[in-house]
């Protein structure tokens, strides 16, 4: 068969969802944000929730997430996304509300908002993208930067005795009573993407059913910040980041499993 014979509409098996706009993403080549955006929007599309969805974008690399996700979106001040999502969900309890934040946004400047939103059990989906660095501002140390990891503001490697240990905020919020589900994922393999999509689907269903806060961390590489090529960055992530930030379920249906 020739390529032309194969590439017919009836043979289509995968195509970018229309819930991602056609804008070219500003992300660096190989950045996980694009994959995570698409996983999220694919599930919203599959569940037919475009007209019921309100998303909250953060400050950081994914500040322009609202340009790519074809749903109604609000842009939050740095760290405040959970406060925004709280109000949206309280005022319109029948909508699907999600936040999308990076590690600086969710685990440093917005720690208070994160913890209190989770503690109140706001029935929203929180997507937390952890790439262990501040990408947007040029590769500075993040709360999640690994011990010894070199960044623009830890040029000799993170000295945990001076600046503290990489923060596992996901494990911190998991025991809170308001939190319904917590899991950690990656997007560096196709299987991992499928797993993430299943978690997103469950998170949407459970948050829509007002079970509590559903929290998904996605470890992602930042090849520019880590100064590697995209493929090597994914390998480095699998070898180092995932050793400290271990993927898998942490809380399932209100029960701690780790």
């Amino acid at each position: 068969m020739t390529l032309n014979e194969i590439c017919k509409p009836e043979n289509l098996v995968y195509k970018k969802t229309s819930l991602l706009t056609d804008k070219v993403m500003h992300y660096c080549p190989g950045c996980g944000h694009g994959t995570i955006h698409r996983a999220l929007m694919e599930v919203v599309d599959e569940m037919g929730l475009q007209d019921k969805t309100i998303g909250v974008a953060p400050v950081g690399c994914s500040v322009l997430a609202y340009d790519y996700m074809n749903v109604d979106m609000q842009e939050a001040a740095h760290g405040r996304a959970p406060a925004l999502a709280t109000a949206i969900k309280r005022l319109m309890p029948e909508k699907f509300v999600f936040t999308y934040q990076g590690d600086g946004d969710l685990a440093a400047i917005g720690t208070a908002e994160t913890i209190h939103c989770c503690n109140r059990g706001e029935p929203i989906l929180m997507v937390f993208v952890n790439n262990a660095i501040y990408g947007m501002t040029g590769g500075q140390m993040a709360p999640t930067t690994l011990e010894g990891m070199k960044t623009a503001t830890s040029p000799y490697g993170r000295d945990v005795h001076k600046v503290g240990w990489p923060l596992r905020i996901t494990e911190m919020i998991a025991p809170l009573n308001g939190v319904w589900s917590v899991s950690r994922h990656t997007v560096h393999t196709p299987a991992a993407v499928q797993k993430l999509k299943r978690a997103i689907k469950k998170g949407i269903e459970d948050s829509m059913a007002h079970k509590g806060t559903c929290f998904i961390e996605v470890c992602s590489s930042c090849n520019s910040g880590w100064k590697m090529n995209p493929v090597d960055a994914n390998k480095w992530m699998a070898e180092h980041v995932l050793e400290y930030f271990v993927p898998g379920d942490i809380k399932v249906d209100g029960q701690m499993v780790r």
């Binding site: 609000q74 939050a76 001040a77 406060a83 709280t86 109000a87 005022l91 908002e113 209190h116």
Partner: peptide, 26 residues
């Protein structure tokens, strides 16, 4: 009408931002 005691003034004004962005009187 929804009434919520937030964790800080920082949070409450950002809740107001979001509510206003939904076209609500907040």
């Amino acid at each position: 009408m929804v009434v919520l005691q937030a964790e800080s003034e920082v949070s409450s004004i950002n809740m107001v931002y979001a509510g206003a962005a939904c076209g609500k009187r907040v």
